[in-house]
Structure formats: structure tokens, C-alpha cells
Write a protein that binds this DNA or RNA. Structure first.
Length: 570
DNA sequence: GCCGTTTTCGGCCCGACTGTTTTCAGTCG
């Protein structure tokens, strides 16, 4: 039972309880516990095996700790089965329809027996919904429209795709007269790997004018709602965007509020309440007097907190760290001195050795490492020892011509099923660094996959494990791994782990990067570029590193070349 | 269901928008 499974179970139970009309705070307790568990770097099942007390976790008391243990030992939860008997689980899907929440779903079920999407559509078409008290013709029509849309609705959008949409719309809004500033807040600003929607904040006096201007954007499929200060639109790409207009004196409060996360906001607002203050998107207030609101710094100062980087605002220890003056100084793109993972035309890259070097230099780097694939990856035209040695000679020749820039000799060597490497040790010994990774047999069980990676790290030539979990964002889960053992194993052996900066990989993910930092494992942030323009992906890797609390010293490729060579010695 | 610098009971974050209402409930973020 993984953390995500436990979190999902609690969220399901919360959904069912909500439809039943259970105490809203009880429902919230389940959701908050789910969030806590999802944000943990350690596996809850391991904590139970080690006999740790789960009630030390925030939002988890005696009852929820027992339920987690029940889940861990039996794989199911009687409370969930019980709730499922009270209301059909199919109702949860109905709450995903925009404008249908738990109360209305319950009413539709009680009054009309609606327990599925099809039953809902039929009831709407037969106009039985508008006959109910509290429902009207408009609501009925809207339900029908939204039920049809539900099928085509995408899930969360990858950050790089969201960036395209966000920048386009932001530019459009900036053209509106009277607009002083446009900022994208929400999970986009926190740099989560995917976003559910976009939250845009506009500083302007005339809200009506901005709302009208937004409605004219060419990429809009439809306007879902529109008020004086807030409008929600759906883009052709399927992405939902909320645009809000705020006055300048509230900009900091609004930016803070709409950046979230929700869990972070709730925690900070509680701190305001404890000081007899009210904190909302317009500012910090003592009775009716506004004490702060123009900047995030002055808002946070009212609850005696320093400014907290958005990437950390997940209520996973950042508030406590801020109070103790122990916030990390997060790594930045400017700290990066080189890129340690990229391919050339020798295998499946699109650019030559020399073109990659030139592109690396244009990034402002001091060095890059060329890491083409090894022979096992036949479809990528992987290198055998002889072809690798040819490339090494080419690199020597290139380095003699380059000034104040170094191309490091490397390889992305395949890790075979038994943990052996795909090239002989003697040729690996001729490299500056050896990057190893898995490209096959993703389906081994957890124990064997973990052993496989540990065996690979046993090879003294291995410097770095690339995309350690093999996951693809919105694509596939990583292979089964005991991450704690991988991280501890890397720490013992002096092996580094990669944050692969491809927006589709971002592997390690944030919580595992943080786990590695805590174990003292150095992280390389690398683009895995297969073309020169993909070196630009470095920013996504840096964002992910920041979400993992990494500082400059935690990152291998912030080092100068001599420091790097030293750090690579095992 | 959780939690404690006012509390082991009684609180628990806050506001915009919509539709169906004559003053507000439901939903969403």
C-alpha cells in the first residue's frame, strides 16, 4: 500500500461522507490527512513496519492512525465499505460536474434516484430536474452541458504546456488599457509539475474593462462565468483560467492568497486568527483597519513570518522553518555551471558534438558532459566500446580547440536486468563520469528493481543515476522502487542522483529530491537534451529542485570544474 | 476527526459568483 493509495482512499471516504451530509470538519479532517500523507517523503507503510507513531503527523490523530494501520494490514477500509452502502460510489463522479456539489448530488439521488452520469442526463432531458425545489431551468441546462463536457475534459496539464497558454493570455491582458500588472499565481507559480488550472491576477482600477478584454482572447472556447472582479474562461486547449482583478493596495495579499497551496493558506490564516487578525485576499485586517496588503512581505510580516518562496508553500514544514529562521536558500538557474546529460547524432540526438558544445557555451556554462546511449539501446543506435572510444578521441580533439569551456567524457550506460552495466569496466574507466540508467524491464517487482539499481551503484565507475524512477508525467508511474533504500544506498556509495529536467520526466520528483538532500546525496540537475534548444529545459529541473528544498551546495553541477571532479571521486 | 499561550470541549479560513430566491444556499477556489 503506497502513500498515494492511502490518500486516495481517504479522499474517496471524504467524498462519500460529504454526500451523506456528514460534519464538514470531519470531511475536512480526512482530506487534510490525505494531503499530509501525499506530501510525505517516507512511505507510511515503512513507518508502520518500523513501529513509528503516526499521530505525530499533523492532522492525524488516534482514529486516523488506526484507519491507516487497518489499510496497511488488510488493504481495505471498513469505514469506506460502510459509507459505500449508504450512498452509491457512482455519485462521486457526479460531483466532478461543474456546478454539481455534494448537496445537489444527494438531492438528485434522494428525489430522482440519479446514481450515474447516464441517469443524470436522462433526468435533465426529461426536465425532471427543474421540477425539484432549488433547481431551475438554467441549472438543468447547465448540468446537461457540463455532463457532456466531462468526457472531453483533460486532467492536469503539464507545466511546460501550461506555460505556453499562460504567456499567451498574459500578453493579451497586458494590452488592455489601465492594466498595471499581470501575474500568474496558483500551482503554476509554485512550479508544480502539472497544473489543474491557471490563476491570473490583474492589477487595474477598472475591473469591468479587464473582464471584457479577457473575453476577447482568441484562444477562448467559452466564458464559464463573469462578474465584476472575477471571470472564468475555458481555453481551446481545455485549460481553465480564472482571472481576478485586484487594486494595487491588495496585490500582495491577493498574490499570496491565490498562490496557495490551500493547505499552506489555511495554516497561515490560523496564525492570523490567533493574533485577532483577519487575513483574506484583500489584506490583513484588525477589525476594519487594513494593516497590510500591497506586498507579500508585509502580509507575512503581520504573522511574524519572513517571505517564503512559492515552491515551498505546501504546508510541509516551510512554516516551521520560516519561524525558526531556517528557510533554505534555494538553488537558482544562475547557480548552474554545466549540464551533465545530453545526446548527439552519434546516437539519438539531433545535433553534433560540436553543436552541443557551442549550445552549452551559449547557456553560459563552463562545461557539459556528452552522455550518449550504450549498445543495448539498439533503437537509439547505442555505442559499443569501439564507437565510444572514437567519440572520446573526438572530444579530446574538440577540447583542444575550445577555450574556457570543457566537454566531459561520459556515457549514459544501460543498467541491465541483473544490475550489471552494458559496457566493460575498462572503457568506463576512461570517462570523466559515468551516468547509468534503466531503459528496460520496468516491470520487475519492488525488491528486484531496488536490488538492480543498488548493484549498478556498486560498480565504482558509476557517478550518477539518471531519471532514477523512470516515471513519465501524465504518462506512466515509475517502476516499483524502495526509494529510501535507493537514497540511503546512494549516500553510502557516494553516488549522485539526477533530477531530469525534461518537463515530461522531472525525475526525481520533488519529495524524493528532498529525501535525497536529507540523506546527504548530491543531486545533478540535467536536461537530457536531444537537441540544442532542449538545453533550455534546465529551468524546469531547477524549479523541481527548489520544490525539493535544494540549495546551491546540494546540487552537483553548481560546482566549478575542479570542484566537480573532486565531488565525483567516490 | 483534530487539537490546545483562552480551551480536553467547542471551536475549526474566507470571499465571489450564480441561480433561485425575496434573504440565501450551493459551489468553487
Amino acid at each position: 500500500m503506497q502513500n498515494a493509495d492511502i490518500a486516495r482512499t481517504f479522499n474517496q471516504l471524504a467524498d462519500l461522507l460529504e454526500i451523506q451530509g456528514a460534519n464538514a470538519f470531519r470531511v475536512r479532517a480526512y482530506r487534510s490527512a490525505a494531503q499530509t500523507i501525499e506530501g510525505l517523503s517516507a512511505a507510511v507503510s515503512d513507518m508502520i513496519e518500523r513501529g513509528e507513531d503516526l499521530t505525530t503527523l499533523g492532522g492525524i490523530g488516534k482514529d486516523l492512525a488506526e484507519k491507516i494501520e487497518t489499510l496497511h494490514h488488510s488493504g481495505s477500509l471498513p469505514a469506506l465499505d460502510e459509507a459505500g452502502k449508504q450512498v452509491p460510489a457512482g455519485l462521486i463522479e457526479l460531483t466532478r460536474i461543474d456546478s454539481l456539489g455534494p448537496k445537489r448530488v444527494k438531492a438528485l439521488y434522494d428525489e430522482l434516484g440519479v446514481d450515474s452520469l447516464d441517469a443524470l442526463k436522462q433526468a435533465a432531458r426529461e426536465q425532471r430536474i427543474s421540477a425539484l425545489s432549488g433547481f431551475g431551468r438554467k441549472t438543468e441546462r447547465k448540468i446537461l452541458e457540463e455532463a457532456d463536457r466531462l468526457h472531453q475534459q483533460a486532467g492536469r496539464t503539464r507545466l511546460d504546456e501550461a506555460r505556453q497558454a499562460a504567456e499567451g493570455l498574459r500578453h493579451h491582458i497586458e494590452q488592455c488599457a489601465g492594466v498595471e500588472q499581470v501575474v500568474v499565481a496558483g500551482s503554476y507559480r509554485r512550479r508544480r509539475e502539472t497544473v489543474g488550472d491557471l490563476d491570473m491576477l490583474v492589477v487595474a482600477e477598472d475591473g469591468e474593462r479587464v473582464m471584457a478584454h479577457v473575453g476577447e482572447w482568441q484562444e477562448i472556447e467559452r466564458v464559464a462565468l463573469r462578474g465584476e472582479t472575477k471571470t472564468t474562461v475555458h481555453l481551446n486547449s481545455g485549460l481553465q483560467v480564472d482571472v481576478r482583478v485586484v487594486p494595487g493596495e491588495s496585490f500582495g495579499a491577493a498574490l499570496y492568497y491565490f498562490t496557495g497551496s490551500q493547505a499552506h493558506n489555511v495554516a497561515v490564516r490560523k496564525m492570523a486568527v490567533a493574533r485577532d487578525l483577519k487575513l483574506n485576499e484583500y489584506g490583513v485586517f484588525e477589525s476594519d483597519e487594513q494593516l497590510a496588503g500591497r506586498t507579500e512581505e508585509e502580509v507575512l510580516a503581520q504573522v511574524e513570518l519572513p517571505w517564503i518562496p512559492p515552491e515551498l508553500r505546501e504546508n510541509c514544514g516551510e512554516i516551521e522553518a520560516a519561524q525558526a529562521g531556517k528557510l533554505p536558500e534555494l538553488v537558482t538557474r544562475d547557480d548552474i555551471r554545466g549540464d551533465l546529460h545530453m545526446h548527439t547524432t552519434a546516437t539519438d540526438g539531433k545535433a553534433s558534438l560540436e553543436e552541443m558544445a557551442e549550445a552549452g557555451r551559449r547557456q553560459g556554462y563552463n562545461y557539459i558532459a556528452i552522455t550518449d546511449h550504450s549498445q543495448r539501446l539498439a533503437m537509439a543506435n547505442g555505442l559499443d566500446a569501439a564507437r565510444l572510444r572514437e567519440q572520446l578521441a573526438d572530444i579530446d580533439e574538440l577540447n583542444e580547440r575550445l577555450k574556457r569551456f570543457t566537454v566531459l567524457k561520459s556515457i549514459e550506460v544501460d543498467i541491465l536486468e541483473d544490475g550489471q552495466l552494458d559496457l566493460p569496466d575498462e572503457v568506463l574507466g576512461e570517462l570523466d563520469l559515468c551516468v547509468a540508467s534503466i531503459h528496460s524491464r520496468f516491470n520487475l517487482d519492488r525488491e528486484r528493481q531496488t536490488e538492480r539499481l543498488l548493484r549498478a551503484m556498486d560498480n565504482p565507475h558509476v557517478s550518477l543515476i539518471a531519471h532514477p524512477t523512470g516515471r513519465i508525467v501524465n504518462g506512466r508511474d515509475g517502476y516499483e522502487l524502495d526509494m529510501q533504500r535507493i537514497v540511503d544506498g546512494a549516500a553510502e556509495r557516494g553516488v549522485c542522483l539526477e533530477i531530469n529536467a525534461q518537463p515530461a520526466r522531472l525525475d526525481l520528483r520533488d519529495i524524493h529530491a528532498r529525501m535525497a538532500k536529507e540523506a546527504g546525496v548530491l543531486i545533478a540537475i540535467s536536461t537530457d537534451a536531444h537537441a540544442t534548444d532542449q538545453l533550455d529545459h534546465m529551468v524546469f529541473g531547477v524549479d523541481q529542485a527548489r520544490r525539493g528544498w535544494l540549495e546551491k551546495d546540494d546540487v552537483l553541477n553548481t560546482r566549478t570544474l575542479p570542484q566537480l571532479r573532486k565531488a565525483l571521486k567516490r
